[in-house]
């Protein structure tokens, strides 16, 4: 497959099976799609439909049972685990439903962590951290620990951490799932802003159709691991 910068993510007959009892569960089954670069896409579906599984495949945290998944033209299925780690470090950022900030580090240290893992030098790190903190409007809270922040602030910090490496693709798994609706809206607006201001491709997993329709420009519907619809919003 030729590398194509205009396609951020592209799946081809992507299948991920899990062994269960005697048989197999197909969490993702024969899924093919393309997400153009700079897109804000929402991955919708009921619980257990395979959204998280698909997102993890895009993140290079998991490997497909069969099929191919390309990120910026490179097939993740063929990468070594070392290469996948580098891909996660440089190309994608992740945001989780549970925030997953490290409780014993300050916000600053949490946001800085991906830069440490990427072996960036210290001066540049400080610059990147303050830039990311500014974008999520947490510059004043950098010395606090996650437990001293509200849920919305914690998720904003998690978004800053996902952005600090300036990834091409931002993957978010139910980022508003633990937040009240006002705070959730705030996070959604933040993601939209990042998408339009930085041109970051965003894939958002959610089961809240309304919210997705408000912000995302492309909808992918999953049912029982199969892609049932994939289309740009009119």
């Amino acid at each position: 497959m030729p590398a194509d910068d205009r396609i951020a993510i592209r799946a081809e007959k992507l299948t991920r099976e899990y062994p269960m009892g005697d048989g197999q569960v197909r969490a993702v089954e024969d899924v093919s799609f393309e997400i153009p670069a700079g897109e804000f896409a929402a991955l919708l579906g009921s619980s257990g439909s395979g959204k998280s599984t698909l997102l993890n495949l895009m993140a290079g945290l998991d490997r497909p049972t069969s099929g191919a998944i390309y990120a910026l033209g490179r097939n993740l299925a063929e990468m070594s685990s070392q290469e996948l780690a580098a891909y996660r470090s440089r190309t994608v950022g992740m945001v989780f439903q549970a925030f997953n900030l490290l409780p014993r580090m300050t916000l600053e240290e949490n946001i800085e962590l991906p830069l440490r893992l990427a072996e960036m030098d210290r001066a540049e790190r400080a610059r990147r951290v303050s830039e990311a903190a500014e974008r999520v409007r947490l510059s004043a809270r950098l010395t606090h620990r996650p437990t001293e922040l509200s849920g919305g602030e914690q998720q904003r910090a998690a978004v800053a951490r996902a952005l600090v490496n300036r990834p091409a693709i931002l993957l978010a798994d139910e980022p508003t799932g633990n937040l009240d609706s006002a705070t959730g809206d705030e996070i959604m607006r933040l993601l939209s802003e990042i998408n339009s201001a930085l041109g970051t491709t965003i894939v958002l997993v959610t089961h809240e159709r309304e919210r997705a329709l408000q912000h995302a420009r492309r909808m992918l519907y999953l049912r029982d691991g199969r892609l049932v619809s994939n289309g740009a919003r009119p």
Partner: peptide, 16 residues
């Protein structure tokens, strides 16, 4: 456990 998972999601290799 969770911390190790976060490290890996943020780009840590097994080696790290």
């Amino acid at each position: 456990r969770r911390e190790i998972g976060v490290f890996k999601a943020l780009g840590a290799a097994d080696r790290d």
